[in-house]
Write a protein that binds this DNA or RNA. Structure first.
Length: 822
DNA sequence: AGCACGCCGACT
DNA sequence: GTCGGCGTGCTC
């Protein structure tokens, strides 16, 4: 009999144990252990039990026989992860430089982690023998406490009852010396939800016969029986209705008069919602794209980019593609930027495919997520709609991944692993041989570039549905307004347009990428600016509570009436946020009904939908909002979109600033004139000649792209070179600077020694981040701009440079292909 | 990370 | 001689 060994990854996120550990598969489990399963193994000197992922199985292992241990137990029969997912996890680990366990953990929904419960029992024989429990020591108190509770206690509860390091150590010692026995139990953090049902046991035929067995004084029991029947009712309903306790139920059970059964329930976030989305006739352009799609997917693993102007019917194309896949017996994943911002997409997919659709996103509870995941895993779903992490949905025969609004930054994770769903999707397509479709009205420069080098097929939709014309976009030079003595945030033109729209009873959207009232507060006399004491940003004035607020850490303080610096009364508010826009619009158009949508008005659950629905039902004339109103929303009666200041995103110190501005302007303009009513867009700016605005005005992606790609080539920014952003954060700025400089020097030294000296110029010297402090933590970064991403990630992965490690007061974030370098 | 081991000083 | 505090190093 040959032995088999399992390669496992211990579920403990630490760099020191980020490696494979080999365990012998015990004879009892031979043939049972599979890749992707979670198991329990003894680990470390004390053989403490931990859970681990089996990532490989082999017949031989190089570890000495006396060192090797055996797997204790399997947690779940069915492997949690598939072989393909394990492959993908390895790629994520290497590409994004994270721990192997982090790459595995990101593939399963939160709440599915394994929890270890340690139940404590008193070993009374040993306790009396050694006379513990008599004196007033901690040991005796613990014994007394457990005795008083009169039930097995969780070790954790005992630690919490007797807090402190010292106590913990002594309790551990009691366990080690067998005064306390510990029974370990592993279980999943989330369980299937069960609903209990109650019915008559079937012992008798008529209710009277049942009642004969119950004393006349047991009113509650009699009442219960009278409400029951020979088919099941929900126990919870009966309990609530009759206001009964468990004891009456228990006595009835004892007499075998009732029976209780339980049924697994599926926590469906979309239950009793009925969406309808009948199939639409395709336009010529749409048909053409579907035909190209059908042709292309005959070949292995094709990648396509649909560049379709806003309102050109990309969703209908996605639905058709998914349908084609279903006919071929293949499943699809449809990624959307953020479910809560694109409820219409989910409705349309469910409306078309109904029960076959699963929805996965971060607003689901752990239980809901787990149920959706299980349904997908069981093969009950053929379509998964979801945000970024839905790319890891465990579909068995994946044929197509669609990424809608592929340029959106929310596809990039800001936690480890800092993956981008598009890059993961590309890798996944390679692994499972499926197809990838990206869609956007404003494709990212990188994606569009890959259509030029034929990596992606470009599919274009140049016209809106029903040939609704693109809205007219006017750029208003706010410098002229100033010259003409108009100091208002509204230009004459925008004011006139709003007024006219109000008269015609059409709706308007006003967009501004800043929340709050004023963006900074300053003294006109001495120039003092109110800044956050914990962050390197100015405080925003909020009108509702008349306080200053930090948008990064939430710090807040009352607005000063006199300057804290020079004691003058010349404190003034500068800059404009959505609150100020709201106030001004209210003043200038008192008859208008106004809604405001930003982080401050959508904090409550459901308020998001509420605002959108109110506006859709024409309960308001004007919607004022930030980014969150710019995407995916379809309001047919909106004919005017006003951008209060387009320059906000333009002046960010980031190489993607122009791209962002073009995207944002185009997307927000796309909210106008989506029906027979034609639309008008007014963009206010201090820089009307900027190419991103000019091309947005002319709905001219191609020329924007040409101009932008030339700049990128000139500056050697992505896609021409890849970026790595390494951010050091910590409370002690001095040691932070010292460490990042050491890091830099070691990197350059390493390159020199490895004969790669010419790559030293790829590394920029460490500098403070644009926002140099957040929440009292200083931030410095080091940027690598290179053609040799693999070499650098290899160096960084090997833990090089050594000596600079994360600690309590130093955090190192390595971001491969960052979305922003601010 | 979490734990045992081992060295050292303090104290019964 | 024993206890426990903390630095070191290993975990299949």
């Amino acid at each position: 009999m040959i032995s088999q060994y399992a390669q496992v990854i211990i579920n403990q996120p630490s760099i020191h144990i980020d490696q494979y550990f080999d365990y012998k598969i015990p004879t009892a489990l031979l043939g049972e252990i599979q890749e992707g399963q979670r198991v329990i193994v003894p680990f470390g000197r004390g053989d403490r039990t931990v859970d681990a992922f089996v990532v490989g199985i082999k017949d031989h292992c190089d570890i000495e026989d006396n060192k090797i241990k055996e797997i204790i137990q399997i947690i779940e029969e069915a492997p949690t992860l598939t072989a393909n997912q394990l492959k993908l996890a390895k790629w994520i680990r290497d590409y994004y430089i994270c721990l192997h366990i982090e790459a595995l953990q990101v593939m399963i929904p939160g709440g599915m982690n394994i929890v270890k419960k340690e139940r404590v029992f008193l070993n009374l024989a040993r306790i009396t023998e050694k006379c513990i429990g008599k004196n007033n020591t901690l040991e005796s108190k613990v014994v007394q406490y457990i005795q008083e509770q009169n039930r097995p206690m969780d070790l954790d509860t005992i630690y919490r009852t007797f807090p402190g390091q010292e106590n913990k150590r002594r309790i551990k010692k009691m366990v080690r010396e067998n005064y306390l026995d510990v029974q370990e139990k592993f279980y999943m953090g989330i369980r299937e939800k069960e609903e209990k049902y109650i019915m008559l046991s079937g012992k008798y035929k008529s209710q009277e016969d049942y009642l004969k067995e119950i004393k006349n004084t047991a009113h509650k029991q009699r009442e219960i029986i009278m409400h029951l029947d020979h088919f099941p009712y929900k126990l919870r309903d009966i309990k609530n209705k009759l206001n009964i306790s468990n004891s009456s139920i228990e006595s009835l059970l004892k007499k075998e008069l009732i029976s209780i059964t339980s049924k697994m329930v599926f926590r469906n976030p979309y239950h009793n919602r009925n969406f309808q989305n009948p199939r639409k006739t395709l336009t010529g352009e749409q048909k053409n794209i579907i035909e190209q799609f059908e042709y292309l997917i005959k070949k292995p693993s094709q990648k396509m980019l649909i560049h379709g102007v806003t309102g050109s019917g990309k969703t209908e194309i996605y639905l058709n593609m998914i349908e084609k896949m279903l006919k071929m017996g293949k499943q699809s994943i449809l990624l959307v930027p953020e479910i809560s911002l694109t409820p219409q997409m989910v409705e349309r997919v469910i409306g078309r495919f109904g029960e076959q659709v699963s929805v996965l996103h971060s607003h689901l509870s752990h239980g809901e997520k787990y149920d959706q995941w299980k349904r997908i895993k069981a093969g009950k779903t053929n379509i998964v709609v979801g945000a970024r992490s839905a790319i890891f949905a465990p579909l068995k025969s994946l044929g197509l991944i669609i990424i809608d609004e592929e340029h959106e930054t929310s596809y990039k994770s800001s936690n480890r692993p800092r993956y981008h769903a598009k890059e993961v999707a590309e890798k996944l397509c390679e692994i499972v041989d499926c197809h990838l479709v990206l869609g956007s009205a404003t494709p990212s420069i990188e994606s569009y570039h890959s259509t030029e080098n034929r990596e992606y097929h470009l599919l274009s939709l140049k016209n809106r549905i029903d040939h609704i014309p693109m809205p007219d976009i006017t750029l208003v030079d706010m410098r002229n307004e100033l010259k003409e003595g108009n100091y208002s945030i509204l230009s004459k033109e925008l004011r006139r347009a709003i007024e006219q729209n109000l008269q015609e009873k059409h709706q308007s959207i006003l967009f501004l990428n800043r929340r709050g009232y004023s963006t900074f507060v300053s003294c006109r006399k001495c120039g003092y600016v109110e800044k956050c004491p914990k962050c390197d940003v100015s405080l925003t004035y909020h009108q509702n509570n008349h306080r200053l607020l930090c948008h990064y850490c939430g710090y807040t303080k009352p607005t000063p009436k006199i300057c804290p610096c020079c004691k003058s009364r010349k404190i003034r508010f500068f800059g404009t946020g959505t609150q100020k826009v709201e106030t001004i619009i209210k003043k200038e158009f008192p008859q208008a009904r106004i809604l405001r949508m930003d982080v401050d008005t959508t904090r409550k659950k459901g308020s998001h939908d509420q605002i959108i629905n109110a506006f859709k039902n024409q309960e308001a004339d004007i919607l004022i909002g930030t980014q969150m109103i710019s995407k995916g929303l379809d309001f047919p009666r909106v004919t005017l979109v006003g951008v209060i200041i387009a320059d906000t995103s333009l002046n960010l110190p980031d190489f993607r600033a122009a791209e962002r501005t073009f995207q944002l302007t185009t997307q927000v303009a796309g909210r106008a004139g989506r029906s027979v009513l034609s639309g008008q867009v007014i963009v206010q700016t201090y820089e009307p000649s900027h190419y991103s605005l000019i091309h947005a005005q002319q709905h001219d992606y191609d020329n924007f792209y040409k101009e932008e790609i030339n700049l990128r080539r000139e500056m050697q920014y992505p896609p021409f070179k890849k970026l790595i952003n390494i951010v050091f954060t910590g409370e002690d700025e001095e040691s932070l600077i010292r460490k990042i400089n050491t890091f830099y020097l070691q990197l350059t030294d390493y390159l020199r020694e490895a004969g790669k000296g010419h790559l030293i110029n790829d590394i920029f010297k460490p500098v403070p981040c644009s926002i140099s402090k957040i929440k009292n933590k200083y931030r410095w970064h080091l940027i690598i701009k290179t053609n040799d991403l693999l070499l650098f990630s290899h160096i960084l992965k090997k833990g090089y440079p050594k000596g600079v490690e994360e600690s309590n007061n130093l955090n190192i974030a390595i971001d491969i292909n960052p979305m922003s370098i601010i």
